[in-house]
Structures are given as C-alpha cells and as structure tokens.
C-alpha cells in the first residue's frame, strides 16, 4: 500500500490532492495512518504501532484499517499497484 507521492498532509489532518484539486479531512488516527503510509511503512508495522498506542482489539482494527484503505483507494489517493 503506497500513498501517491504528491499528496500533502497538514498537521491538522487536512489533505490535498493537487491532481484532482480535492481536499479531505482526517480524524487523528486517520492522519497517523496516512503519515505512516507516506513513510512507506508496511501494514504490519502500522498495526503494531496502533496496538502499541491505542486500546483496541486486533480484529476490530483490522476491519477498520482495510475499510480505511478502501476509502483511500476509492478517492484515488493510493499508487496503482
């Protein structure tokens, strides 16, 4: 999973896609995940990071994570594989 390199993320969780001109908002966890993706972290590294920091069951996070990735893909924010 790789974020398109030209996507800009602000500290407040605001993102901008210069190609489409669309902008988006993220909640804090969304922003953390996006930053990790931008840093080319793997799915495993990302989930380990989240489990370390947040109180959440693995199965719930996994569902939410793939749903989130699905939305990034839906908005064309990920590199085509």
């Amino acid at each position: 999973m790789k974020l398109k390199s030209n996507i800009a993320i602000s500290d407040s969780g605001f993102i901008f896609d210069p190609v489409s001109g669309d902008s988006y908002t993220l909640n804090p966890i969304g922003k953390e995940i996006l930053s990790l993706l931008k840093g080319n972290k793997s799915d495993k590294e990302i989930s380990d990071f989240i489990f370390e920091k947040y109180d959440i069951e693995e199965s719930i996070f996994e569902k939410n994570y793939y749903d989130f990735i699905g939305m990034l893909s839906h908005h064309n924010l990920l590199e085509e594989l």
């Binding site: 993102i15 669309d22 902008s23 988006y24 908002t25 993220l26 909640n27 804090p28 966890i29 969304g30 953390e32 995940i33 996006l34 989240i50 920091k53 947040y54 109180d55 959440i56 996070f61 939410n64 994570y65 749903d67 989130f68 939305m71 990034l72 908005h75």
Partner: peptide, 13 residues
C-alpha cells in the same frame, strides 16, 4: 496507559 481508539476515517470536503 493506552489511548482511547476511534476508527480512522477520511471525508471529502
């Protein structure tokens, strides 16, 4: 202590 979790989301503006 771990932080309270919420689902990651993205909303288009």
């Amino acid at each position: 202590e771990k932080l309270k979790y919420e689902r990651p989301i993205i909303n288009k503006i």
